[in-house]
Design a protein around this nucleic acid. Sequence first.
DNA 1: TACGATATGTCCTTTCTCGGACATATCGCA
DNA 2: TGCGATATGTCCGAGAAAGGACATATCGTA
Lengths: 108, 108
Amino acid sequence: MTENFKKEIVQRIIRNLLDIQILRLILAQPMWGYRIKKQFETRFGIKLRHGALYPLLNELEQKGFLTSQMQQQGGRTRKVYSITEKGVDYVEAYAFVLREQIRNQDIQ
Amino acid sequence: MTENFKKEIVQRIIRNLLDIQILRLILAQPMWGYRIKKQFETRFGIKLRHGALYPLLNELEQKGFLTSQMQQQGGRTRKVYSITEKGVDYVEAYAFVLREQIRNQDIQ
DNA sequence: TACGATATGTCCTTTCTCGGACATATCGCA
DNA sequence: TGCGATATGTCCGAGAAAGGACATATCGTA
């Protein structure tokens, strides 16, 4: 039961804070869309629609959280994203809020 | 800048995981809808619409996370909610997931 | 050469959510 | 008696999000 709750909550967090989870992944290592999609499947067992992922990545770049550069791998073109300083700030703010949430477990 | 990010993230979490925040509040102390609304304003500076809150509370009761009992205070009727075992499990699962998120800060 | 995987992008329809309005009742105070 | 606060509830329209389809191109392998 609690195990199911954990899965449910993880899925809710990833759905609603997907951008942050993507930033966290790219923080660890620069990455391209398709790779991110695959990573989410293997790590979290969550299938991202590419029809949602690619527009989101472009949006995150537009907002200054990510930068991208095209890379050639054989005949394939990859749009490799790296996190910016602003992106790191956002991830750090997230970590801060999480710690705060845990600290205030017994709000009284 | 980071300060704004924190506020933004707190608001996103509360919006998307509102039910969990409510369970956490009731875990600390049984409470009725109107009081919850006021608590959110004073604690988090977040205004909850009662048009969203009351249906959510009823839903949480239906799902077995909360139980309620009517209480009379003068001529006023309050529907006081207490958290159930299932509700506590859910809050604990949330705390577990949060700790996991912090631990895996550098996903590699 | 045909198919599955890699790689990125748009578009449209349906579903869901949000904000606000409508509704009712009591209490205390001016 | 009228108003703001307390207290709980429903309903509806607009805007946002989700899901899936449409679109294109390369690579490796059977």
